[in-house]
Protein backbone atom coordinates (compact mmCIF):
# COMPACT_ATOMS: atom_id res chain seq x y z
CA UNK A 1 0.00 0.00 0.00
CA UNK A 2 1.49 3.32 -0.97
CA UNK A 3 2.15 5.88 1.69
CA UNK A 4 0.96 9.37 0.85
CA UNK A 5 2.67 11.83 3.28
CA UNK A 6 0.57 14.74 1.99
CA UNK A 7 -2.69 12.91 2.79
CA UNK A 8 -1.40 11.83 6.20
CA UNK A 9 -0.75 15.41 7.31
CA UNK A 10 -3.98 16.83 5.89
CA UNK A 11 -6.69 18.06 8.25
CA UNK A 12 -9.81 15.91 7.99
CA UNK A 13 -13.34 17.34 7.62
CA UNK A 14 -14.67 18.52 11.00
CA UNK A 15 -17.46 15.97 11.04
CA UNK A 16 -17.25 12.62 9.27
CA UNK A 17 -20.03 10.09 8.84
CA UNK A 18 -18.97 6.50 9.47
CA UNK A 19 -21.14 3.89 7.76
CA UNK A 20 -20.40 0.63 9.55
CA UNK A 21 -21.59 -2.80 8.45
CA UNK A 22 -22.98 -4.64 11.46
CA UNK A 23 -23.72 -8.33 12.02
CA UNK A 24 -25.43 -9.99 14.94
CA UNK A 25 -24.67 -13.74 15.16
CA UNK A 26 -27.60 -14.35 17.55
CA UNK A 27 -30.20 -13.13 15.07
CA UNK A 28 -28.16 -13.67 11.89
CA UNK A 29 -29.08 -10.12 10.84
CA UNK A 30 -26.82 -7.83 8.81
CA UNK A 31 -27.41 -4.07 8.62
CA UNK A 32 -25.66 -0.72 8.21
CA UNK A 33 -25.33 1.89 10.97
CA UNK A 34 -24.30 5.51 10.54
CA UNK A 35 -22.37 7.54 13.13
CA UNK A 36 -21.33 11.16 12.96
CA UNK A 37 -17.94 11.71 14.57
CA UNK A 38 -16.09 14.93 15.32
CA UNK A 39 -12.57 14.48 14.05
CA UNK A 40 -9.15 15.97 14.76
CA UNK A 41 -5.92 16.15 12.85
CA UNK A 42 -4.05 12.84 13.00
CA UNK A 43 -7.16 10.82 13.88
CA UNK A 44 -7.05 7.29 12.56
CA UNK A 45 -10.06 5.20 11.59
CA UNK A 46 -9.40 3.01 14.64
CA UNK A 47 -9.44 6.12 16.87
CA UNK A 48 -12.78 7.06 15.35
CA UNK A 49 -14.21 3.57 15.89
CA UNK A 50 -13.08 3.61 19.52
CA UNK A 51 -14.68 7.04 19.93
CA UNK A 52 -17.92 5.63 18.50
CA UNK A 53 -17.70 2.71 20.94
CA UNK A 54 -17.03 4.95 23.93
CA UNK A 55 -19.43 7.81 23.19
CA UNK A 56 -22.13 6.76 20.73
CA UNK A 57 -22.72 3.01 20.48
CA UNK A 58 -21.20 0.62 23.03
CA UNK A 59 -22.37 -2.45 21.12
CA UNK A 60 -20.09 -2.01 18.12
CA UNK A 61 -17.39 -4.68 18.03
CA UNK A 62 -13.96 -4.55 16.41
CA UNK A 63 -10.63 -6.29 16.99
CA UNK A 64 -7.47 -4.29 17.68
CA UNK A 65 -4.37 -4.45 19.81
CA UNK A 66 -1.16 -2.52 19.18
CA UNK A 67 -2.56 0.59 17.39
CA UNK A 68 0.69 0.95 15.44
CA UNK A 69 0.46 -1.45 12.49
CA UNK A 70 2.47 -4.23 14.09
CA UNK A 71 -0.03 -6.81 15.33
CA UNK A 72 -2.25 -6.87 12.22
CA UNK A 73 -5.48 -7.23 14.21
CA UNK A 74 -7.49 -4.25 12.96
CA UNK A 75 -7.78 -5.19 9.29
CA UNK A 76 -11.07 -4.07 7.77
CA UNK A 77 -12.43 -2.83 4.47
CA UNK A 78 -12.35 0.95 4.52
CA UNK A 79 -14.01 2.68 1.57
CA UNK A 80 -13.84 -0.53 -0.45
CA UNK A 81 -10.18 -1.27 0.19
CA UNK A 82 -8.70 -3.68 2.78
CA UNK A 83 -6.62 -1.57 5.17
CA UNK A 84 -5.37 -1.56 8.75
CA UNK A 85 -7.65 0.81 10.67
CA UNK A 86 -4.79 1.98 12.90
CA UNK A 87 -2.67 2.89 9.87
CA UNK A 88 -5.41 4.75 8.00
CA UNK A 89 -5.84 8.42 8.70
CA UNK A 90 -9.39 9.77 8.50
CA UNK A 91 -7.99 12.58 6.35
CA UNK A 92 -6.71 10.01 3.85
CA UNK A 93 -10.13 8.53 3.13
CA UNK A 94 -12.60 11.35 3.85
CA UNK A 95 -12.74 14.63 1.97
CA UNK A 96 -14.76 17.83 2.43
CA UNK A 97 -16.69 16.91 -0.71
CA UNK A 98 -17.43 13.38 0.51
CA UNK A 99 -17.08 13.13 4.30
CA UNK A 100 -18.34 9.54 4.45
CA UNK A 101 -16.25 6.51 5.38
CA UNK A 102 -17.65 3.05 4.76
CA UNK A 103 -16.33 0.25 6.99
CA UNK A 104 -16.95 -3.46 6.42
CA UNK A 105 -15.41 -6.62 7.85
CA UNK A 106 -12.65 -8.24 5.80
CA UNK A 107 -13.97 -10.32 2.93
CA UNK A 108 -13.10 -14.02 2.49
CA UNK A 109 -12.96 -14.42 6.29
CA UNK A 110 -16.19 -15.53 8.04
CA UNK A 111 -17.71 -12.78 10.20
CA UNK A 112 -18.14 -13.47 13.91
CA UNK A 113 -19.73 -10.14 14.86
CA UNK A 114 -19.73 -6.66 13.29
CA UNK A 115 -16.14 -6.08 12.15
CA UNK A 116 -14.59 -9.13 13.81
CA UNK A 117 -13.70 -11.96 11.45
CA UNK A 118 -12.72 -15.57 12.10
CA UNK A 119 -9.08 -16.21 11.19
CA UNK A 120 -9.12 -19.94 12.08
CA UNK A 121 -9.03 -21.18 8.46
CA UNK A 122 -6.48 -18.51 7.53
CA UNK A 123 -4.11 -19.55 10.32
CA UNK A 124 -4.67 -23.24 9.55
CA UNK A 125 -3.42 -22.58 6.02
CA UNK A 126 -0.48 -20.63 7.44
CA UNK A 127 0.31 -23.54 9.77
CA UNK A 128 -0.01 -26.10 6.98
CA UNK A 129 2.97 -24.68 5.07
CA UNK A 130 5.28 -25.21 8.06
CA UNK A 131 6.39 -21.61 8.55
CA UNK A 132 9.66 -22.37 10.30
CA UNK A 133 13.21 -23.36 9.39
CA UNK A 134 13.72 -27.07 8.76
CA UNK A 135 17.22 -28.57 8.80
CA UNK A 136 18.25 -32.11 7.99
CA UNK A 137 20.24 -32.25 11.20
CA UNK A 138 17.54 -31.55 13.76
CA UNK A 139 19.89 -31.84 16.68
CA UNK A 140 22.06 -29.08 15.25
CA UNK A 141 18.99 -26.83 15.06
CA UNK A 142 17.81 -27.64 18.57
CA UNK A 143 21.13 -27.52 20.38
CA UNK A 144 22.87 -25.00 18.16
CA UNK A 145 24.74 -22.24 19.90
CA UNK A 146 25.64 -20.37 16.71
CA UNK A 147 23.68 -18.76 13.89
CA UNK A 148 23.58 -19.87 10.25
CA UNK A 149 25.65 -17.75 7.92
CA UNK A 150 23.96 -15.71 5.22
CA UNK A 151 25.29 -12.97 2.96
CA UNK A 152 23.61 -9.51 2.85
CA UNK A 153 22.52 -10.25 -0.75
CA UNK A 154 20.82 -13.48 0.33
CA UNK A 155 19.22 -11.64 3.22
CA UNK A 156 17.86 -8.95 0.87
CA UNK A 157 16.26 -11.67 -1.30
CA UNK A 158 13.94 -12.74 1.50
CA UNK A 159 13.86 -9.81 3.91
CA UNK A 160 10.66 -8.23 2.57
CA UNK A 161 8.82 -11.55 2.95
CA UNK A 162 9.82 -11.80 6.60
CA UNK A 163 7.95 -8.57 7.34
CA UNK A 164 4.55 -10.28 7.02
CA UNK A 165 2.35 -9.69 10.09
CA UNK A 166 -0.42 -12.10 8.95
CA UNK A 167 -3.06 -9.36 9.02
CA UNK A 168 -5.11 -11.13 6.32
CA UNK A 169 -5.55 -8.07 4.08
CA UNK A 170 -4.02 -9.88 1.08
CA UNK A 171 -6.34 -12.83 1.59
CA UNK A 172 -9.29 -10.45 1.77
CA UNK A 173 -8.32 -8.66 -1.46
CA UNK A 174 -7.62 -11.87 -3.42
CA UNK A 175 -10.25 -12.56 -6.12
CA UNK A 176 -9.24 -16.25 -6.21
CA UNK A 177 -9.72 -16.68 -2.46
CA UNK A 178 -13.14 -15.07 -2.99
CA UNK A 179 -14.30 -18.08 -4.95
CA UNK A 180 -12.01 -20.96 -3.99
CA UNK A 181 -11.86 -22.10 -0.36
CA UNK A 182 -9.02 -24.52 -1.09
CA UNK A 183 -6.68 -21.75 -2.28
CA UNK A 184 -3.88 -21.43 0.26
CA UNK A 185 -3.90 -17.69 -0.24
CA UNK A 186 -1.20 -15.07 -0.80
CA UNK A 187 0.03 -15.07 2.79
CA UNK A 188 0.67 -18.81 3.12
CA UNK A 189 2.21 -19.08 -0.36
CA UNK A 190 4.50 -16.14 0.37
CA UNK A 191 5.71 -18.00 3.43
CA UNK A 192 6.45 -21.05 1.27
CA UNK A 193 8.62 -18.96 -1.06
CA UNK A 194 10.21 -17.19 1.91
CA UNK A 195 11.49 -20.56 3.20
CA UNK A 196 12.28 -22.03 -0.24
CA UNK A 197 14.49 -19.02 -0.97
CA UNK A 198 15.99 -19.00 2.53
CA UNK A 199 19.52 -20.48 2.40
CA UNK A 200 19.14 -21.64 6.03
CA UNK A 201 16.24 -23.94 5.15
CA UNK A 202 16.92 -27.42 3.80
CA UNK A 203 13.36 -28.66 3.14
CA UNK A 204 12.84 -26.78 -0.15
CA UNK A 205 12.05 -29.97 -2.11
CA UNK A 206 9.39 -31.06 0.37
CA UNK A 207 7.95 -27.55 0.40
CA UNK A 208 7.73 -27.35 -3.41
CA UNK A 209 6.11 -30.76 -3.62
CA UNK A 210 3.66 -29.93 -0.84
CA UNK A 211 2.29 -26.85 -2.65
CA UNK A 212 2.05 -28.54 -6.06
CA UNK A 213 -1.62 -29.27 -5.37
CA UNK A 214 -5.00 -27.74 -6.14
CA UNK A 215 -5.09 -24.46 -4.27
CA UNK A 216 -1.34 -23.99 -4.66
CA UNK A 217 0.47 -21.28 -6.65
CA UNK A 218 -1.11 -22.42 -9.94
CA UNK A 219 -4.50 -21.19 -8.71
CA UNK A 220 -3.19 -17.61 -8.62
CA UNK A 221 -4.14 -15.41 -11.59
CA UNK A 222 -1.96 -12.46 -10.72
CA UNK A 223 -4.55 -9.78 -10.03
CA UNK A 224 -1.80 -8.34 -7.75
CA UNK A 225 -4.37 -6.92 -5.32
CA UNK A 226 -2.48 -8.67 -2.51
CA UNK A 227 0.63 -6.62 -3.26
CA UNK A 228 -1.41 -3.44 -3.66
CA UNK A 229 -3.06 -3.71 -0.23
CA UNK A 230 -0.16 -5.10 1.82
CA UNK A 231 0.60 -2.60 4.62
CA UNK A 232 4.13 -3.97 5.03
CA UNK A 233 5.26 -3.95 1.37
CA UNK A 234 5.66 -7.73 1.45
CA UNK A 235 4.72 -8.18 -2.24
CA UNK A 236 2.94 -11.55 -2.07
CA UNK A 237 2.06 -11.33 -5.77
CA UNK A 238 5.70 -11.47 -6.81
CA UNK A 239 6.48 -14.21 -4.26
CA UNK A 240 3.76 -16.45 -5.72
CA UNK A 241 5.04 -15.90 -9.30
CA UNK A 242 8.58 -16.77 -8.15
CA UNK A 243 7.27 -19.85 -6.38
CA UNK A 244 5.29 -20.96 -9.45
CA UNK A 245 8.28 -20.41 -11.72
CA UNK A 246 10.51 -22.39 -9.33
CA UNK A 247 7.93 -25.17 -9.20
CA UNK A 248 7.83 -25.45 -13.00
CA UNK A 249 11.63 -25.56 -13.11
CA UNK A 250 11.67 -28.12 -10.30
CA UNK A 251 9.24 -30.39 -12.15
CA UNK A 252 11.43 -30.08 -15.26
CA UNK A 253 14.47 -30.93 -13.17
CA UNK A 254 15.99 -27.48 -13.70
CA UNK A 255 15.59 -25.90 -10.26
CA UNK A 256 18.51 -26.00 -7.90
CA UNK A 257 18.73 -24.09 -4.65
CA UNK A 258 21.61 -21.63 -4.85
CA UNK A 259 23.29 -22.50 -1.58
CA UNK A 260 22.54 -23.98 1.80
CA UNK A 261 23.79 -21.89 4.71
CA UNK A 262 26.38 -23.38 6.99
CA UNK A 263 26.48 -22.91 10.70
CA UNK A 264 28.81 -20.23 11.93
CA UNK A 265 31.97 -21.43 13.61
CA UNK A 266 33.67 -20.03 16.70
CA UNK A 267 33.12 -16.31 17.22
CA UNK A 268 36.86 -15.61 17.39
CA UNK A 269 37.21 -16.52 13.72
CA UNK A 270 34.52 -14.04 12.72
CA UNK A 271 35.80 -11.06 14.65
CA UNK A 272 37.86 -8.89 12.35
CA UNK A 273 40.91 -7.09 13.78
CA UNK A 274 40.14 -3.44 14.55
CA UNK A 275 41.47 -0.89 12.12
CA UNK A 276 43.26 2.07 13.70
CA UNK A 277 41.26 5.31 13.53
CA UNK A 278 42.49 7.89 11.00
CA UNK A 279 44.16 10.96 12.55
CA UNK A 280 41.18 13.22 11.76
CA UNK A 281 38.86 10.91 13.70
CA UNK A 282 40.90 11.18 16.90
CA UNK A 283 38.79 13.03 19.50
CA UNK A 284 41.76 14.67 21.19
CA UNK A 285 45.10 15.10 19.49
CA UNK A 286 47.42 12.49 20.78
CA UNK A 287 44.75 10.64 22.79
CA UNK A 288 45.29 6.94 23.26
CA UNK A 289 41.96 5.41 22.18
CA UNK A 290 42.89 1.87 23.16
CA UNK A 291 43.86 2.95 26.65
CA UNK A 292 40.64 4.99 26.94
CA UNK A 293 38.57 1.98 25.88
CA UNK A 294 40.23 -0.17 28.53
CA UNK A 295 39.74 2.40 31.23
CA UNK A 296 37.55 5.47 30.59
CA UNK A 297 39.22 8.69 31.70
CA UNK A 298 37.95 10.10 34.96
CA UNK A 299 37.38 13.83 35.02
CA UNK A 300 38.09 15.50 38.36
CA UNK A 301 35.05 16.95 40.10
CA UNK A 302 36.69 20.37 40.42
CA UNK A 303 37.09 20.47 36.64
CA UNK A 304 33.41 19.64 36.15
CA UNK A 305 32.29 22.38 38.55
CA UNK A 306 34.54 24.90 36.88
Amino acid sequence: MTFDPEAATRTPPKKVIFRVKRYNPETGKTWWDEYEVETYRGMTVLDALLKIKEEIDHTIVMRYSCRMGVCGSCGMIINGMPRLACQTQVAEVATEANPVITIEPLKNHPVLRDLVTDFTAFFEKHRSVKPYTIRKDKEELETGDMEYLMSPEEHKELYEYTLCIACGLCYSACPVAASDERFLGPQALTYVWRYVSDPRDEAWQERLEAVDVEGGPFSCHYAASCSAVCPKMVDPGAAIQRLRSALIKYRLGLYKKKKVAKKATRPAEQVKPKKPLPPEAQPVPGANIEAMEREPPTIPVEQLIA
Binding site: Y159, Y161, C230, M233, D235, Q241
Partner: peptide, 16 residues
Protein backbone atom coordinates in the same frame (compact mmCIF):
# COMPACT_ATOMS: atom_id res chain seq x y z
CA UNK B 1 8.17 -8.61 -11.41
CA UNK B 2 11.19 -6.72 -10.11
CA UNK B 3 13.62 -7.71 -7.40
CA UNK B 4 12.94 -7.93 -3.67
CA UNK B 5 14.00 -4.75 -1.90
CA UNK B 6 14.02 -3.23 1.54
CA UNK B 7 10.92 -1.13 2.25
CA UNK B 8 11.34 2.58 1.74
CA UNK B 9 8.87 5.41 1.13
CA UNK B 10 6.46 5.53 -0.63
CA UNK B 11 6.25 1.82 0.30
CA UNK B 12 5.18 0.54 -3.09
CA UNK B 13 5.63 -3.21 -3.63
CA UNK B 14 8.46 -3.86 -6.15
CA UNK B 15 6.26 -5.87 -8.51
CA UNK B 16 3.84 -2.94 -8.86
Amino acid sequence: IGKPEKPKPPYLAPSL
